[in-house]
Design a protein around this nucleic acid. Sequence first.
DNA 1: CACTAATCGAGACGGTACGTCGCGTCTTGTG
DNA 2: CACAAGACGCGACGTACCGTCTCGATTAGTG
Lengths: 216, 216, 216, 216
Amino acid sequence: MADYDTLGSVFAEGAKMAPPNSDVGDVQRGAGRPRDPRIEQAALAAARELLVEVGYARLTVAAVAGRAGTTKAALYRRWPSLPHLVYEAAFPDDLLKDWHLGADLRADLLGIVVGTRDAFTTPVAAAALPGLLAEFSTHPVLHNALLSRFASVFEAIDDRLRDAATAGEVKAEARSEDLLRLMIGAALIGVLLGPETLDDAWAARITDILLEGIRP
Amino acid sequence: MADYDTLGSVFAEGAKMAPPNSDVGDVQRGAGRPRDPRIEQAALAAARELLVEVGYARLTVAAVAGRAGTTKAALYRRWPSLPHLVYEAAFPDDLLKDWHLGADLRADLLGIVVGTRDAFTTPVAAAALPGLLAEFSTHPVLHNALLSRFASVFEAIDDRLRDAATAGEVKAEARSEDLLRLMIGAALIGVLLGPETLDDAWAARITDILLEGIRP
Amino acid sequence: MADYDTLGSVFAEGAKMAPPNSDVGDVQRGAGRPRDPRIEQAALAAARELLVEVGYARLTVAAVAGRAGTTKAALYRRWPSLPHLVYEAAFPDDLLKDWHLGADLRADLLGIVVGTRDAFTTPVAAAALPGLLAEFSTHPVLHNALLSRFASVFEAIDDRLRDAATAGEVKAEARSEDLLRLMIGAALIGVLLGPETLDDAWAARITDILLEGIRP
Amino acid sequence: MADYDTLGSVFAEGAKMAPPNSDVGDVQRGAGRPRDPRIEQAALAAARELLVEVGYARLTVAAVAGRAGTTKAALYRRWPSLPHLVYEAAFPDDLLKDWHLGADLRADLLGIVVGTRDAFTTPVAAAALPGLLAEFSTHPVLHNALLSRFASVFEAIDDRLRDAATAGEVKAEARSEDLLRLMIGAALIGVLLGPETLDDAWAARITDILLEGIRP
DNA sequence: CACTAATCGAGACGGTACGTCGCGTCTTGTG
DNA sequence: CACAAGACGCGACGTACCGTCTCGATTAGTG
């Protein structure tokens, strides 16, 4: 995943249009030298390394290119700007791949809390998150990319909560939106203030508060 | 508060500290031309205006200086860097001045939620917050400034919760830290994702969830 | 002359030096986007204009860049500092291109006096000279550039004087070094104290004094 | 010499006017705290030291004040600007105090050459000269100060040469102006290109060339 | 002996230029 | 086409020095 097409569909703003001979439906594999597939991985790996080493603020395109053994132009051919690259490096597409809901409501909520915490407390993610949040407020494209990625998760939780309401496990008026924001917000604050306190006991306490908070 | 001395105690790195024996005739006190107090206010006001007009990312030291009718050097004499100035401009010391707890636990919690939301949804604060969060991870001084500011609030809520536990209103094991982080995190996420949803109904819902969550 | 390579050989500090084995297929030769040759000429022209308009002391890198339609960074890519640019602008390499010695000793000496005066009394040179002299003592690279430029002239005059000594026109112990310094010094002092007195009669008088001074 | 009054007469531009009670002819020794006479000497000494240590270009008012144990304001009370201070430090008023002409024309000329060389090759003067020359072309006040200082010398040499012409020692049309410029120019060039070559043999050679050059 | 007035230290002031850095784009020659 | 290389315009950075100013604290002479 995380390949050119996926990126293009999320970030491209028209410049990455398929070449004119795409009428036959073959993806733009047309004329010209093909892209070196190693560059993509090398760039993401370099970005991850540098994020941990120097932090988001001191991360530069030239440094990523140098570490990846390529040049700035090759990176700008793949990502519209540095934040896009960082976003993909810190939060790859496969982040949510083995995530699912089950029958036990508390286990499901705990899973979300733990999953969010784990996604945020990765050294790479912890280094990238504050900077990316700042970019989100400036670049709506990035913002939407984040939201659309979590849209399916959001819907799934919404359904799960509705089922729980039907089963009488939670209040009918409980909103998945509120719950999710509380969980993500708690994890985010934890990362910003010091991720060392976000142990499993913390996750259990947060889950219990929220679970009791929406019980009928 | 929010005056020159307070600033010095938070940001200065030793040079501006009053010597411990300053109770006697301290000769150095007030040597040199005193700082023009209007510059400080003008700079903070200019920063607030520009934050709303152009946003954090496009905010420039030169622009703040120009709008304030002074020069970059005068600003660097007062704040180590632009984020420090922005922090003080967006979150002045008197932010928490008329804040207090009462007898009604729900009212107290709601007050915190609403107060945090109001502090974060100010146009100035909303513009500054994402950028400042990114800087916090770079500038530990700023980070500590934020934490120390909320330290007293934290203690007060801690005491309030302990009283409530004694009165049987909440669980004995309820932690003010968890509660506070949930409340602040919810407001923060709200600001980052779209502050238009943070109405009074939202505050009431969040308060109710948390209150029920810690009931015995 | 006065082109990119000559500049490199005079001012560059190793980075731009062609490697000694560059006779074979030197891969690095010409890598990257080539420098825009118009910028070099535009910068020199802008410097010349501004030297006359505002003088050396008020000459700014930003002003030269602005007038040349480029930016400071492009200038710093070509010259280590403003004095280097000014030096090349005021005293280009082709300054001595149509200079030669002949059979008449007095005519030769007069030619040097007049040539030096003309080179120094150009509006551009007159504006640049005092400032450059001050920089010479700070930047030895500039100093050496000046000296090496006159080295060939120096040798030619040395030979000419030796021939004249053989022909019995001048004393055997007459030193071209002394003579040249007297001539250049007289012109320099003239420019510094007021170039309006350096007419052709002045040149004739100076030439006659020096010529008689070294007659046997 | 070199005191306040002399300075005032040379440099002051009206600001240093005597107070209104000076009608009785007493120099402004009126009210107010008198100037600390040690500051003047300390500043000149500090300037001399720093000129040799860091050169003219890196010499700053703050550094001179610091080295002299005083402040910038005290210096600006005595000299209109840094070049004025440097000028007086490098070329004090008593420079020409034991200078005179005699009966031997060659000895007189040699004296001027040697005297100029000695005045220019002092470490302090050699460090200050190029920078001061650059300032001269910008600040006519300084320029005039230099010229007026040498005016008497100039006249004396003029007379001396006229006497020599009457005595048949030199051509009638020989100009002291040309001669003096040649001598000063030679010394100046020598300092700029490397003062180590300006030994006594050099002085003798220069003197002989010029003397022969104006012989009838 | 108080009063006046200039100087002292200290250091902030407005102003201006410096040289550097990073961005995202472009223009070469070479696959 | 992609790629390595590196220059390009743009704009901001944080620093340094200038010469001036405003303090409170001396330090004389004057009334």
